[in-house]
């Protein structure tokens, strides 16, 4: 565990924590622009977090200790996820602790934790949200794993840093299987982060909400932690996407110059990704909830096809 590794690790983690609300703000702002609205500004998520942290927490009478623990668990899990996905550099101290499969495990852990918390109060909405979240997750998790497996098959490693090193730093090669993986990943990203065709982040309509239904009973600092964790999750997903599909610019081991370039490159990619996501969310309409399994099933099968194509074409 080198000093440089530890430094980049902590730098990357802190940066992810700080940049995650920024990315969400940028995404929302782009959406607002595309929809001909003024928008609340990029810094809105920070303001919201600050406001929530200062409020008095209200907890339902029927809540168990589990309910109060879950926001922290969620936050911790997302911190780990953000620290093992190489977004700035590939020399990360914690990256050996968890590989691509464990990354999917972390997301599953977070998903199950929040679903359990949603069921804890015993309201109709909580249970409904938990059920829908698990339904989406039940197909999204395998789909994500298929995407990661396709990348692992190419780089013959499940370690995320090795995957990025292989994809970014060896001589340029086209991997057709990644085209399938890319489609599947985009669908998973939208579904897992409660974005548009599956869930609407801007709506509290009872019949359609998933993520919002689960966190209805949270308030103040607990809600702030959950909101923050969700933005880190979105950020982590986008950086996974960047790491797998456009990895160029991520600094290699012990490379100070590369590090200096990596940050502006990352921010540029994030800006583009945010605008792209906003565009997708503006163009597509919310699907009926019964279509969600079909959507996720399609994503999963595209992931499987990616793996198959890797075997078919040998690349």
């Amino acid at each position: 565990m080198s000093a440089f590794g530890l430094f980049t690790q902590i730098l990357q983690l802190l940066l992810s924590l700080l940049l995650a609300p920024f990315f969400l703000g940028w995404l929302n702002q782009c959406r607002a622009w595309l929809q001909n609205r003024q928008g609340a500004g990029i810094e809105q998520p920070y303001r919201k977090l600050g406001k929530l942290f200062h409020k008095d927490a209200v907890i339902a009478e029927s809540a168990s200790p589990l309910f109060r623990m879950v926001p922290y668990v969620l936050f911790g899990a997302m911190c780990l996820a953000a620290s093992i996905v190489p977004s700035l550099a590939t020399d990360l101290s914690f990256s050996k602790a968890a590989d691509a499969i464990a990354l999917a495990g972390i997301f599953a852990l977070a998903r199950i934790a929040i679903s359990l918390a949603a069921m804890d109060i015993g309201t109709a909405f909580g249970g409904m949200g938990a059920r829908r979240e698990m339904l989406v997750g039940f197909l999204a998790e395998p789909a994500l794993l298929m995407v990661l497996f396709t990348a692992s098959l190419i780089s013959r490693s499940t370690s995320l840093t090795v995957i990025v090193e292989t994809l970014a730093h060896r001589h340029f090669e086209i991997y057709p299987s990644m085209a399938f993986a890319g489609i599947a990943f985009l669908m998973v990203l939208l579904a897992e982060n409660a974005r548009l065709p599956v869930d609407n982040p801007a709506s509290h309509l009872e019949l359609t909400m998933i993520h919002e239904a689960m966190i209805l009973e949270y308030s103040a600092r607990h809600l702030a932690l959950i909101e923050w964790a969700s933005s880190i999750k979105l950020f982590a997903y986008v950086t996974i996407g960047i790491a797998l599909f456009v990895p160029w610019g991520i600094a290699q081991a012990a490379d100070w110059l590369g590090m200096a370039f990596a940050l502006p490159i990352l921010i540029a990619k994030l800006l583009v990704a945010g605008a792209g996501l906003a565009l997708i969310e503006t163009l597509v309409a919310k699907q009926r909830i019964f279509r969600a399994p079909e959507f996720m099933g399609t994503a999963f099968l595209f992931g499987v096809l990616g793996m198959l194509v890797h075997f078919l074409l040998g690349a």
């Binding site: 090669e173 057709p176 085209a179 194509v309």
Partner: peptide, 21 residues
């Protein structure tokens, strides 16, 4: 060869996209 592979898999992708449309 790589380009052709890529285009071939895009073709396959489109065939599946048609199935799922």
């Amino acid at each position: 060869g790589q380009y052709i592979n890529l285009l071939a898999s895009i073709l396959l992708l489109l065939a599946f996209a048609m199935l799922s449309q």
